[in-house]
Each structure stands twice: as C-alpha cells, then as structure tokens.
Design a protein around this nucleic acid. Structure first.
Lengths: 243, 243
DNA sequence: CGGCAAATTGACACATCTCAAAGCCTGTGG
DNA sequence: CCACAGGCTTTGAGATGTGTCAATTTGCCG
C-alpha cells in the first residue's frame, strides 16, 4: 500500500476530498525508505527540501538537550498516515530530529510538490495545514497530561492516544497493537526516569488494565484505562467538517 | 495602532511581504474588543466564525480538566502580534478557551476573509500557516522544559521566552516588561502548585536574577537566567527566509 | 480604617529520582 | 545443545523535589 493511502484515509476521515485533490495526492512522486530502530530519519536541519509521511512502524520527534548530549526529550510520536515533518515545509528550520521507533518505513515528498499544491489547490492546502494543527493539538494535550496526571495515569493516556490514532487509520483493532517502545524511550516521552516508567507499567498491569509483553500491547479494560487517564479524544479533531 | 501592525511586524521579521500581501492585510476588516482580567475571549466552541489577534496585554489558552471543574491547565501564552486562535480557522473545534491575562485587547478577523486569503494569496497563506506552526514549536519547547527542567529553571525558561517574544515585536526592551500573571496562573502554566511557584520566584529573586514586584518584571542578569533555563530561542523561528 | 485577595512561610506527606544490584531475554559462538 | 555476553527489565533503599494544609503577612481598594 502506498503511504498516500493511509494519509488519504487520515484526511477523508475529516473532510471530503474533491476529485482534483485526490488526483493530486495520488500523483505525488515519493521516495520510500526503511529504517532500523533508533536510526535518524530527519536530522536537525535548516531549509529542508522534503518532508516524510509515516508508512510503517513508529517515529518520534527527538530533542537533544543543550549541554547534556546523552539526554533527550521526545515531544511527538507518529503512526502510519501521519505527515511527520510537514511543518518543516513552512518553518525555516527544525529544532529536533525525527528518529525511528522500532523498524520503520517512511515516504519522502519534495517541498517543490507541496509548494505547487499551495499555489493550485487552496482546499487541499487547508487540509495539509489542518494535519499540522492536529499535531499541535496533540502537543497541547501532552502538556495537559504532564501537568495534571500522575505517572500511571500519564502512561495510560499515552496508550489510549496511540491506540485511538492507530485505530483511526485502520492500523489496529481489538484493543491490541504493536508498540516497540523501549522503557528508556517511554521515559523520554513522559518525562520520567526509566525506573519510574517501569513502576507505572507494572501498576497498570497489576490493576488488570493492560497486558504488555515485548512489543505487544493489549488493552484489557479500555473503559478503566480511559477513565484513569481522563482520556477524551476530542482533541484529535476526528470530525467530518468543511475546511 | 491597529493590531495588524504588530502582526505585520511579526511576519516581516520572518519573510518579505509582497505589496499584494501587505495590502490585503491592511484591508482586513476587524473588530476590536477589550477584556478585563480573567474574562473569556474565545469559549470552547465548534466551527468558530472568527479568530483573534492580540493587540494589548496577554491571553492564554486554558484547558478545563474533565471532572475537576476548578482545575485548569494553561498550554500557551500570547503576546501582542500573536494570531491567537488562528488554528480555529482550520480545526473543526477548539478544545480549550482563550482567556485574558490581566487587562487585554484583541482584534477579531472573520474566517470568511481568511478563506479568501487562502483562495487568492498562496504566499500569505503559507505565512499564516507558519504562525500556527511557531505556536506548535513553542508547545514542543514547553514539553521539553517540563520534562527536563526543575521548577526554578522552568520558570526562568518561561520568563526568557516571554521577554524574547515581547522584544521581537517591539513590546519590551531593557529586560523589563509587564507581566500581570497571578502566581495561581503561573502554576497553571508550569504545572506546579501555587506554593511551589512562589518558592521558584523567590529562588530566582534570591539568586539576583530577576526583580518582580506587582506586574513589573525586570531581568537583572539575562545571561544567568538564560543559562539556568538553557534557553535557546531557535525554536521561535525568527529568521528571514523564503516561505 | 477594614476587608479581601494574593503572596509568603513552615511543617509534613507523597511522588519521583538516583544509585546499585539482580533477573530476564536473545543472539552468538563453541 | 550449552555457555556466555549484552542490553533491557525489574526490584530495593535512600535522597530530593513537589504537593497539601494551615497560618501569617502584604498590598490594594473601598
């Protein structure tokens, strides 16, 4: 399946695509590349020439801390169908890198083609814009979660969100999904020490809310997990609307 | 001064505006409204019909927590020149409200006019897009700060950022600015208890880094404050570039 | 002057971090 | 098939950061 299929599904869940919009998306020339776990997909750079969509696996936006080379913070996770670094198209530079979480495959689109879309197709342009704004809404929700939830609930929120996003593009069902995240990476996402993340995982397990072995996650009690996390998917903006 | 002047300065700091772009911005029909401290400027709503730019004072994006009516989290602060809820133009709904921090004045722009810009002026459209992406970059930096800085350094980071943003649009100089933030609001921003925020403020004062009385903040030692906060303004994307 | 909201302080409880060590998986070479 | 190495996970104990509660002080405004 071409990545654009996932991305088209992502868009169509939120608005109707005209024939013109669809045709242009399908005609995009792209380059597919596969990455090993931990590899850098997009480096910190200025004036990037292309952006990537997620095709398979997961990726993350990783911020290196100044003066502490071995520490980093992950500010976003991306699932298939996400236009991962579309914001690099409009910004002068990326202040973070994009790395593979587990084995991952992405598809690159040149900025020339994106510029052409903005010149010709206002509606599709607004939908691309929308995709970056949903990322921003997720950032805000992560801020809310970080400020208002204790460790177990915070982890629960992340799991609810990832499942909701995977499910929305048809990449997960039955409350099961692959999550090849190391606990160290989870710590970089949630802002805890790896040890504390481990305790949070155990807590959710002990409460009978999840099963997690290797990269396999099963949500045993969706309602319980969502209640603990106070999860409300409104922020993912998955609503049909004219944009 | 019309708000558009601040916003135009915001844009011109980052790219060249064509005569057409400028003319369209200057021709925007807007409605100015003033608000008292704490008042709601934009409610939680679906399918908003207008968005607002910051003219005077400060505003914040406030998230009500589900099931805890008296608690909230603030995920963004806006200074004059910011197009505060421009994201409401493309999203189906806002999951937060916008409130006044101290006395504030904003200028509303109808979404009809924004739609027209996206139909006619691709370059200006990309610049509007950029403005929302800079907000997203600020969200990410807040996530990094929350995950990697202890309370005093976290507060220091916020002060550095606010000053940098005010200074960038000419709304502050000499390391002094008005910051009519209650410590309770500061707590909602940083994710600490008001008591702990108070300790952080005192710490920065005791170290001789800032003076803060009433709404008046003076940064006594910019270098020291920025070092403590590991502040690097790159994420504000204040660079001339073709977009 | 009085009243109220905000800022400040102290003491104690709870959450999370750090360091250290032990257990578990998986791939590899003998 | 087994032994081993290495990375990841899990556990424990003590140090530090932050939250909560209660009380006092400050500053503003009527």
């Amino acid at each position: 399946m071409a990545i654009t299929d996932y991305f088209i599904r992502y868009l169509q869940r939120r608005d109707r695509l005209s024939d013109k919009d669809l045709a242009r998306l399908r005609a995009l020339r792209t380059e597919q590349v596969a990455y090993a776990p931990g590899e850098v997909i997009v480096p910190v750079e200025r004036h990037a020439q292309r952006s990537c969509m997620m095709l398979r696996g997961l990726s993350a936006r990783s911020h290196q801390l100044v003066g502490r080379p071995e520490e980093r913070v992950i500010t976003a996770l991306h699932v298939p169908g996400d236009f991962v670094d579309l914001h690099g198209f409009v910004l002068a530079g990326l202040e973070h890198s994009v790395i593979a979480i587990g084995p991952a495959e992405v598809e690159f689109v040149s900025h020339d083609q994106l510029t052409a879309i903005t010149e010709d197709l206002p509606h599709l342009t607004r939908l691309l814009w929308m995709a970056t704004l949903i990322d921003a809404a997720v950032h805000r929700q992560w801020l809310v979660a970080a400020a208002s939830l204790r460790s177990s609930a915070h982890l629960a929120h992340l799991l609810c969100e990832i499942y909701a996003r995977l499910h929305a593009v048809g990449a997960a069902s039955d409350h099961r999904f692959a999550l090849p995240l190391l606990q160290r990476e989870l710590a970089d996402i949630l802002g805890y020490s790896p040890i504390h993340v481990n305790r949070a995982v155990r807590d959710l397990r002990d409460r009978g809310l999840i099963r997690w072995s290797g990269a396999d996650v099963t949500i045993l009690d969706w309602k319980g997990l969502a209640t603990l996390a106070r999860f409300d998917p409104t922020y993912l903006d998955m609503e049909q609307a004219r944009r």
